[in-house]
Amino acid sequence: MLKLRDGIIELYRKVATSLPPDVEDALKSAYIIEENGSNAKQALSTVLENILLARETSRPICQDTGVPVFYVKVPIGLSQVELKDTIIESTRIATEKIPLRGNAVDIITDKNTGDNTGKGFPVIYFEETHDSTLTIDLMLKGSGCENTGQIYKLPVEELGAERNLEGVRRCVLDAIHKAQGRGCPPYTLGVGIGASKDQVTRLAKDQLIRKLTDTNGAPVLADLEKRLLNEINQLGIGPLGFGGKTTAIGVKVGVNHRHPASYFVDISVCCWANRRGRLIW
């Protein structure tokens, strides 16, 4: 597990100090379309310069290196207990070495452990796979944006949101209006729809692993994603909330079957520093 440990530390470094190409490209496109002389354009110019500086100097793009969220696809026969131990050890070393900010705070004592490990910290989701390779996706989820997430129980009368995808559309727009610029736009949104609160919250976050350039396999959801992206950008909140044309760079929707009595919609908001990466072992 020693080599894997080093691989995970390097994955941490890559994810903390650089952005995936699809995200960086989307931010560059946003810079181009914002008006010359606007605060939005100036802000995006600084954001892009910061991305370059972080990569060149191997320092974290954002001082909030977030809650590390691992999605691990484990081949049959590989021990999840050992993998968990390796991830926790890698987290301690990566926090010291890169360095990352210690973000794990004990609820009872209010003390920060300083090394990004604690109860349920980092977040690790395992899934067994028939594949022979181990695949580890890591997301460093900033908490300014995490705080702007919302959950809705449809129907919502004030929004005229019924139990259908039109109702979902209304909730997502409402959530972004509520978020304003507090979670560092341009945002990437993960939307999860289904039967229970815990499940849709997880499903919404799962969507943030998808590339901005992918297309939803269900045409009706692909249309909804496209429409929502276009409409969110009509809200005028803009980069960093300064006003402008780019409030979001991606919307991804995931669905599960629901119970006849329930229609939950969760919206997970990710800041412009949409930091994710993959290690295949």
């Binding site: 802000a43 600084t46 954001v47 310069e49 910061n50 500086l53 972080a54 100097t57 320092r59 974290p60 793009i61 954002c62 001082q63 909030d64 210690g102 705070v105 003390k111 920060n112 300083g114 900033g142 300014g144 610029g181 560092c184 960093l240 800041c271 412009w272 520093a273």
Partner: peptide, 25 residues
């Protein structure tokens, strides 16, 4: 500039001191 953590750190010439480091982290 939200998230521009390296860019902004470059504009800090010196960290002079800290207070409540042990208590607050």
């Amino acid at each position: 500039i939200s998230g521009a953590a390296v860019y902004l750190a470059e504009r800090v010439r010196k960290v002079i001191d800290g207070w409540k480091i042990d208590d607050f982290g």
